[in-house]
């Protein structure tokens, strides 16, 4: 005789109905914001909707975007990686020095991805095994890399001339800048893993309820290490792209990048508490913020208003995201 639990689930859920509405609202809100912004800047500046400028935006969005893919994974497990900006600066110096010794893009790529991954593994180890809060662990690493990048060449930059690296950062495949192609590949792969693979499912589970994940036999520590390693490796890749773009490795290249990346992921609707978010939305977040910077410069309103606008965007995103709505619901319930 099969136990009948119909009656157990009887009471229709008012909470459920409101939650469903909330989620739908959130999904549409981001796309609406994106569309509105495109419309706004198109009206503000004739230079905005030109092919050249759109490709320009795409290229600028690519480096931040690549880092944002890694950051999305990290934030999904309720972690954070504040070291990515300084890591970009430091890895850039490493790349430039490597190229002086071995003038090969393969070597540069190996160093970029290798060092980034190792750094990420270290962060992940601090977080998952030593239980250092991610904020503290990655903040400390950020300081270390900042100093490291400056000490590397006595505060000075290093010049890069390798043509393949310059092609990677500044070149084109047809009309499309190479970094955009790289970003597209990373984004698609990242999205597939997150939405279609067992690993991706585990990432969401750990973010949603780490204890439940552990009890269910999910290798939480291993997933955490992998996620941080991914974030580091992608920061390393971004460093290579920056070096290729600027033909220079500077200790200042990564200044403020971690905040830009985190802002993009948050505007994309990822919850800092973990378990909620996806790469399609992260892409929209990256584009919304990149277009903001670009539009303001095109229109000639630059400077402090840029910081203001970015800050307001992040605040709005957090307010409109599920988190605040959920807390409000809980209060009423």
């Amino acid at each position: 005789m099969t136990p009948n639990m119909t009656a157990v689930a009887e009471r229709p859920s008012l909470r459920g109905a409101v939650a469903k509405q909330g989620n739908r609202y959130r999904d549409y809100a981001l796309v609406a914001v994106f569309a509105t912004e495109v419309l706004f800047w198109t009206l503000q500046s004739p230079a905005f909707l030109t092919l050249n400028n759109l490709l320009n935006i795409a290229r600028q969005a690519s480096t931040i975007g690549i880092m944002a893919v890694g950051m999305t994974y990290v934030i999904l497990i309720a972690g954070i990686d504040l070291s990515v900006g300084s890591l970009v600066s430091f890895t850039g110096m490493l790349i430039a020095s490597t190229l002086i010794g071995i003038d090969s893009i393969i070597a540069a790529l190996a160093v970029a991805l290798g060092f980034g991954a190792v750094s990420g593994l270290f962060s992940g180890y601090l977080v998952s095994r030593l239980h250092v809060p991610a904020f503290i662990a990655t903040l400390s690493l950020m300081q270390v890399y900042l100093a490291g990048a400056q000490l590397w060449n006595d505060g000075g930059p290093l010049s890069v001339t390798n043509s393949a690296v310059l092609m990677l950062g500044s070149g084109y495949i047809g009309p499309v800048p190479v970094p955009v192609v790289v970003f597209a590949v990373i984004l698609l792969c990242g999205h597939w893993v997150l939405s279609q693979s067992v690993f991706g499912r585990h990432v969401y589970a750990i973010g949603g309820n780490p204890e439940a994940a552990r009890l269910a036999g999910i290798p939480v520590r291993r997933v955490t290490l992998t996620v941080y390693a991914l974030s580091g490796a992608l920061a390393g890749l971004a460093a290579l792209l920056f070096v290729g773009r600027l033909a220079t490795a500077s200790p200042l290249t990564g200044t403020g990048l971690e905040l830009q990346v985190i802002a993009a992921v948050i505007v994309g609707g990822c919850s800092l508490f973990g378990g909620k978010g996806n790469l399609r939305d992260t892409l929209l977040g990256v584009l919304v913020l990149t277009m903001l910077q670009n539009g303001l410069t095109l229109v000639g309103v630059s400077g402090f208003w840029q910081n203001f606008a970015t800050g307001v965007a992040v605040l709005l995103a957090v307010l409109l995201s599920g988190d605040v709505l959920a807390k409000m619901r809980k209060k009423e319930a």
Binding site: R201, Y204, A205, G207, G208, N209, E211, A212, A213, L215, A216, G275, K276
Partner: peptide
């Protein structure tokens, strides 16, 4: 209950 609230029933 050790359920992941952010995932569906099958998950």
């Amino acid at each position: 209950l050790a359920l992941a609230d952010n995932l569906d029933v099958a998950a």
